[in-house]
Amino acid sequence: MEGNVRYYDPIFKENAVLLSHKRETVLETAKELDITPKMLSKWRCIYKTFRKGSFPGRGHKRMYHINSKIFELENKLTESQLRLEILKKGSQYIHQGKQELYNFIYKNRKKYLISKMCEVLGASTSTYYSWTQQPFTKRETRVHLLKKEIVSVFFEFKQHHGSILITRELHRRGYQISDTQVSFWMKQLGLRSKVKKRFKVTTDSKHNLYTSPNVLNRQFKVDRPSKVWVSDITYIQIDKRFLYLTVIIDLYDRKIVGWNLSSGLSTVTTIIPAWNMAVSNRKILDGLLFHSDRGVQYANKVFTNILDGYKCTRSMSRKANSIDNAVSESFFNSLKRELIYSQKTLLTPKEMRAEIFEYIENWYNKKRRHSALKYKTIEEFNAEI
Rank of each mutant, 00 (worst) to 15 (best):
Gly3Asp: 15
Gly3Glu: 15
Phe12Ala: 03
Val17Ala: 02
Thr25Met: 00
Thr29Leu: 04
Leu33Trp: 04
Thr36Tyr: 08
Thr36Ile: 07
Leu40Pro: 00
Leu40Gln: 00
Trp43Ala: 00
Phe50Thr: 00
Lys61Glu: 10
Tyr64Thr: 04
Ile70Asn: 08
Leu77Phe: 09
Arg83Ile: 08
Leu84Gly: 11
Glu85Ser: 14
Ile86Trp: 03
Lys89Ser: 12
Gly90Leu: 02
Tyr106Lys: 13
Leu113Asn: 14
Leu113Lys: 14
Ser126Phe: 07
Thr137Met: 04
Thr141Arg: 11
Leu146Val: 05
Phe157Asn: 08
Gln159Trp: 09
Gln159His: 11
Leu170Phe: 03
Tyr175Met: 05
Leu191Gly: 00
Arg192Val: 13
Arg192Thr: 13
Leu209Phe: 07
Thr211Val: 14
Ser212Glu: 14
Pro213Asn: 05
Arg224Ser: 09
Lys227Pro: 05
Thr234Gln: 06
Ile236Ser: 03
Ile236Glu: 03
Gln237Ile: 12
Gln237Lys: 14
Asp239Asn: 15
Ile249Phe: 04
Arg254Ile: 03
Val257Tyr: 02
Leu265Asn: 06
Val268Ala: 11
Ser280His: 09
Phe290Ile: 03
His291Gly: 02
His291Trp: 02
Ser292Asp: 01
Gln297Ile: 01
Leu307Glu: 01
Asp308Cys: 10
Lys319Ile: 07
Asn325Tyr: 00
Glu329Val: 04
Phe331Gly: 02
Asn333Thr: 14
Leu339Met: 10
Glu355Ala: 14
Phe357Ala: 13
Lys374Pro: 11
Tyr375Val: 08
Lys376Pro: 08
Phe381Ser: 05
Asn382Lys: 15
Ile385Thr: 15
